[in-house]
Amino acid sequence: MDDVKIGEILLPGDEETQERQEARVRNRFWPTFKSAISRLPFARDVVAAYYCAIDRETPLRVRGILLAALGYFVLPFDTVPDILAFVGFTDDIAVLTTAVALINGHIKQRHYDAADDALRDEDHRAFDG
């Protein structure tokens, strides 16, 4: 997956775009994550990025980048369909890794704490607030 494609995916968009993206991510994140968890080498970071993206204290541009990356992650058919076992998540991993690198420092300890709690808890939605 080339840098230009990843750059296009990670465009933060305006507030209206981010609201639509957030609704899609909130709806599909946990089911997609549960099916991918064994194939994600950095699951804790992905969940922390999710909590950072839905945190209203996170700067708008950062939220937009994370919501774009997570929106790509939850799409059932993207550049490489996720149904193709591990290979299907390689493009998702590239996009998420790039997004986390771009917003380095904005994922706070509270986001990691929420991620740790969620990874221990079956009812992940209890942490969406």
Rank of each mutant, 00 (worst) to 15 (best):
D2N: 12
V4D: 05
V4A: 02
K5L: 12
K5D: 10
G7D: 11
G7C: 01
L10F: 00
E15K: 11
E15N: 08
E16Y: 14
Q18Y: 00
E19W: 11
R20A: 07
E22N: 02
E22F: 06
V25E: 01
R26P: 00
R28Q: 14
F29I: 04
P31V: 08
F33P: 02
F33C: 05
K34T: 10
S35L: 14
R39H: 03
L40Y: 05
F42E: 14
A43F: 05
V47Q: 05
V47S: 11
Y50L: 11
Y50I: 12
I54Q: 06
D55R: 00
R56E: 14
V62I: 08
V62L: 06
R63M: 12
I65K: 09
I65S: 00
L66W: 05
L66Y: 00
L67I: 04
L67M: 08
L67F: 03
G71S: 06
G71Y: 00
G71W: 02
F73W: 01
D78R: 06
T79E: 11
A85I: 09
V87K: 09
V87W: 12
F89C: 06
F89D: 10
D92V: 03
I93N: 02
I93E: 07
T97N: 12
T97L: 08
N104I: 11
H106L: 09
Q109S: 04
Q109F: 10
Q109N: 06
Q109W: 05
H111W: 09
Y112D: 00
R120K: 15
D121F: 08
D121Y: 06
H124I: 08
A126W: 12
A126S: 13
